[in-house]
Design a protein around this nucleic acid. Structure first.
Lengths: 247, 247
DNA sequence: GTGAATAATTTGTCAAGACATACTTACTTA
DNA sequence: TAAGTAAGTATGTCTTGACAAATTATTCAC
């Protein structure tokens, strides 16, 4: 069990909180191998002394990383870099975000974008009366020139000014966020089924091929539904990867 | 936007930390409707005064609940119960845990439990040399008298003394936890495919039916792999539901 | 009446200090 | 030599206090 000295520079004139600067520097060191898995950090009191910070501030930085699964702490022992890799944290992201992060170039073909009267089930989840006008999107997402997913989304009408051009250039969540929508909670349901003939054709798969399905309703920080999506992915080309971290 | 007074009793002789008692009481009030969605809490300074706590202690309680997605805070405004329901938090749980929580009575049929030499891929994820003896489990999980999932798991040999009897009575994670294993991080991959003839027969489905798949490797707080699982679920009977909360 | 500036409110950040608890190591005793 | 106890180590909890930043409400000027 080695203790490694780590060079951490704090910019006190920066608007970035000190605890966050420290946390980021440690995360960076873990990421680039300066702090290998299993390494023990100096104790909190020492770190506070070395960095000229108060101990609670140091604790806040460390707790932030503990919450992310990068560090583990044990009373009487110390703080250690977690063995093993956190690959992919649980986050509220769209497929576009995910693909881009994975280094792929997502492309979008908007099949339709129209205002329609909300059917009973969609109205229920969006919290509007049946028949209320809602915006309905139908898109195909491509990666590496191949269709990857068929995406249906419903949004309250007027909630955001979306155009086919914008949806082709950016992901839906990105667009919503840029209009000030603060997405906060999403209930999602992941399943599987076979493709209908229409779906198979759009996704360039054989009829009855397995699809990974995701139905998700996203709420803003006031609890209002901002989006309901029903997406199907080619199981042959896509899987959901995520890392669960126990606090 | 209403502010509701909440009666919180703190037991200072209890070994349970004060911040945690406060957090639990608030969570209880949210759960039982005393604190409806959208309600605003008294400000931190007031709460600290009312409860005879320091403000950082109150903040710690609130932050704990913010992290769980129950509360939302805004500088200059206050702290509010999140609108909308957190249905199912992201957690490191097993299917057995999930089913039980959902009020179902899971049953398990152990098809095999044996020590085998680790194949290349399993050895890789468990962090042992190929050929090293590992414990291999093959089970069917039933709910409501119907097969729901076919579960394969591999564990380092000797990591836990598992018997078919124990596995029939309790979930794997529960058993691991009871032997002191501290599961911390799990990397999981969710996909879909069609069932092989053998799988279809065991799950009482037709050949080629869609399966929801999950491959998961779980690590303890020292980063050691404690379990690798490859599970397939009848898509007709099961879907994964989870709530994502943005911090 | 409207817009800009100022004040009030509340969370966010940070500091200094003290005691409690869990874990590890060293020492003592049988 | 092994077991038990004490000491040392390090995180966990809690207190008091102060200033900063974002949001909302109020006031003032045009």
């Amino acid at each position: 069990m080695t203790v490694t000295k780590l060079d951490i520079d704090l910019d006190r004139s920066s608007p970035v909180p000190l605890y966050f600067q420290m946390a980021e520097r440690i995360a960076e060191a873990i990421q680039n191998g300066e702090l290998p898995s299993g390494t023990r950090l100096d104790n909190e009191v020492q770190l506070a002394d070395q960095l000229g910070l108060s101990r609670p501030t140091v604790r806040q930085a460390i707790q932030y990383l503990v919450d992310k699964g990068l560090l583990v702490r044990k009373r009487g022992v110390g703080t250690q870099v977690v063995h093993g890799q956190v690959k992919r944290a649980v986050e509220l992201t769209s497929l576009y975000d995910d693909l881009r992060r994975a280094g792929q170039q997502p492309e979008t073909r908007v099949l339709s974008i129209e205002t329609v009267p909300a059917e009973e089930d969609v109205a229920g989840v969006l919290g509007v009366a049946p028949g209320t006008p809602v915006l309905r999107l139908e898109r195909i997402r491509y990666a590496s020139g191949e269709p990857l997913a068929l995406l249906h989304n419903w949004l309250p009408a007027g909630a955001a000014s979306l155009t086919a051009e914008a949806l082709q250039a950016r992901g839906l969540y990105e667009l919503l966020r840029s209009t000030g929508v603060r997405m906060r909670v999403a209930n999602q349901r992941i399943g599987a089924r076979t493709a209908t003939p229409a779906e198979a054709r759009l996704l360039e798969e054989r009829r009855g091929c397995p699809l990974l399905t995701m139905v998700r309703t996203t709420y803003d920080d006031q609890g209002r539904a901002v989006e309901h999506g029903s997406h199907v992915y080619r199981a042959s080309h896509y899987a959901l990867e995520v890392t669960l971290v126990e606090r």
